[in-house]
């Protein structure tokens, strides 16, 4: 996720202090990974350098948290361009799991156990997300659902692979 674009988007509605930006970001998007202050200020200085934001006002006192940032015309154009550009779907062609399964088969280790262990781990996470979803607001639910659908896809792949494991073993060892 592009933190820079997210900051620009947040700044578009109103100028903010760096601290406000971090809080708004964490609240909406950073559930599991809150931003470090270092990340915030390095991003802001990059945006400032590129002319996408400008310092709106400086309050008396010391430190960077005294600066209020506002978006520039170029910044608005940049956000516009970012939003209108479709994200490239991830091809998921490089899978660690697949590599592990093949290696297990090649080395005569129990691949089925590997799959089951992974499956249990996936489901454990799904359960946790489901629990969060049940107690969360709509935004929370949508975020969890996004993850759940991805995990479900993985899980289906695990199921399918488990069902075709014998076939795969023959092919790999051939």
């Amino acid at each position: 996720m592009s933190i820079g674009h997210t900051f620009l988007g947040l700044l578009e509605s109103s100028p903010r202090h760096g601290y406000d930006l971090k809080r708004a970001y964490d609240e909406r998007f950073g559930h599991t990974r809150p931003l470090h202050f270092g990340q915030v200020y390095s991003t802001l200085s990059r945006l400032l350098r590129n002319g996408l934001v400008a310092v709106d006002s400086v309050e008396p006192g010391e430190g960077p948290e005294r600066k209020r940032y506002a978006i520039t015309e170029a910044g608005v154009t940049d956000v516009q361009r970012w939003l209108s550009q479709p994200e490239k779907p991830e091809p998921y062609l490089q899978s660690v799991l697949y590599t592990k399964v093949v290696l297990a088969l090649l080395t005569d280790r129990p691949a089925a156990d590997l799959l089951d262990t992974q499956r249990a781990e996936h489901l454990r996470l799904m359960r946790e997300l489901t629990r969060r979803k049940t107690h969360g607001d709509l935004a929370e639910q949508l975020i969890c659902d996004h993850a759940l659908f991805h995990l479900e896809a993985d899980l289906r792949w695990l199921e399918l692979t488990a069902a075709r494991l014998d076939e795969l073993a023959k092919e790999v060892r051939a």
Binding site: D116, L123, M126, F149, L155
Partner: peptide, 22 residues
């Protein structure tokens, strides 16, 4: 459906007529 199963506390997988608790 895994997403439905996610409402459970734990999971049991049935394969070839045998149940396995994970």
């Amino acid at each position: 459906e895994p997403r439905v199963a996610a409402y459970s506390d734990r999971e049991v997988v049935v394969r070839d007529g045998r149940a396995r608790s994970l």
